[in-house]
């Protein structure tokens, strides 16, 4: 352990790997000092574990109905969070719901930022009319309120989890394009790019290999900060019945089914909402912490 930390703290790293690992270690130390960020990290870790080990954590089958057990209060008959109108265990449904949420979040997180990154870097590096056209398109998508455009898209594509992901991804790429373009503009005229160009690298190689990596940190921060928004939008679509379809345990959908029993059986709508709240808060806290660690401007002070 001590040899590992001395290796990480070495002031004159002997390999690229060591230098990178050292940087990451320093970042980790900085983040560990921020208690709120650590809370966020814990929440996200718990979400991951919950999704991975759902069958072992859940106490009941999330889909099996048992009408003799319907609408039980929390903590009765071994139902931690009570049961819903079909007698399904809410706790187990919340646990399995973590899988659905993570599925949506992951798919959006690997599509929208990549597309935004591509548009932004090409636009920033090419300049001229390419830049103009791409940025106008970006502006148009930014001009729509996200949820409304997602609603219209789902209305056309039909409800379902894949279409919800597509709609959310289509509405959330523009900010990444903006961020990537801004980063590209700051590096495109630097000496190292000129050096690469002199060596004969073409535009696609420069953008892909030398500009995109520079944009990654700020895009990653944005992604983490946006994850909460993605979760909320997905839950909103689910709540309106346009996202995940029953009987799949999606948190937004569960809230909407609990709406009918709000005043008599409050727990049906309350529990999944708490899950959404805690997970979004986790991503927000983690994103804030990551920004403080990765953003060189904020570490300066």
């Amino acid at each position: 352990m001590t040899t590992l930390t001395t290796w990480l703290r070495d002031h004159s790293p002997s390999s690229r790997l060591q230098a990178r690992a050292g940087q990451a270690w320093l970042g980790w130390l900085r983040m560990r000092r921020n208690p709120l960020a650590m809370v966020g990290l814990t929440i996200v870790a718990v979400l991951l574990l919950m999704a991975a080990f759902a069958p072992w954590i859940a106490t009941h089958d999330p889909i099996a109905q048992d009408l003799s057990q319907r609408l039980l209060r929390p903590m009765t008959n071994g139902h931690l969070m009570g049961t819903d109108e079909f007698g399904r265990d809410i706790f187990s449904r919340v646990v399995y719901g973590a899988r659905v949420t993570l599925y949506i979040v992951t798919l959006v997180a690997v599509t929208a930022p990549v597309f935004g990154l591509l548009v932004g870097t090409v636009s920033g590096y090419a300049g001229g009319w390419v830049d103009q056209v791409l940025m106008r398109i970006t502006d148009i998508f930014l001009a729509f309120p996200k949820l409304i455009l997602a609603l219209a898209l789902v209305a056309v594509l039909g409800p379902g989890i894949e279409n919800a992901v597509l709609a959310i991804a289509l509405t959330s790429w523009p900010p990444y394009a903006r961020v990537a373009r801004a980063e590209t503009l700051t590096v495109r005229n630097s000496d190292y790019i000129a050096a690469v160009r002199l060596q004969g690298a073409g535009p696609s190689r420069i953008v892909w290999g030398h500009i995109m990596p520079m944009c990654l940190p700020s895009v990653i921060i944005r992604v983490t900060l946006d994850m909460a928004g993605v979760i909320l939008t997905a839950a909103g679509l689910g709540f309106l019945g346009l996202g995940v379809q029953p009987p799949m345990p999606e948190w937004g959908l569960m809230i909407s089914s609990g709406r009918k029993f709000l005043f008599e059986q409050w727990w049906v709508a309350t529990m999944p909402g708490l899950a959404i709240f805690v997970v979004s808060l986790g991503f927000n806290l983690l994103g804030d912490g990551l920004r403080d660690v990765l953003d060189p401007r904020s570490t300066a002070k």
Binding site: A228, L232, A235, G236, F239, G252, I255, S256, A269, G273, I276, F277, S280, L281, F283, N284
Partner: peptide, 8 residues
């Protein structure tokens, strides 16, 4: 506020 679903 950033983390709570508005409908909930």
């Amino acid at each position: 506020g950033y983390s709570m679903p508005v409908f909930w």
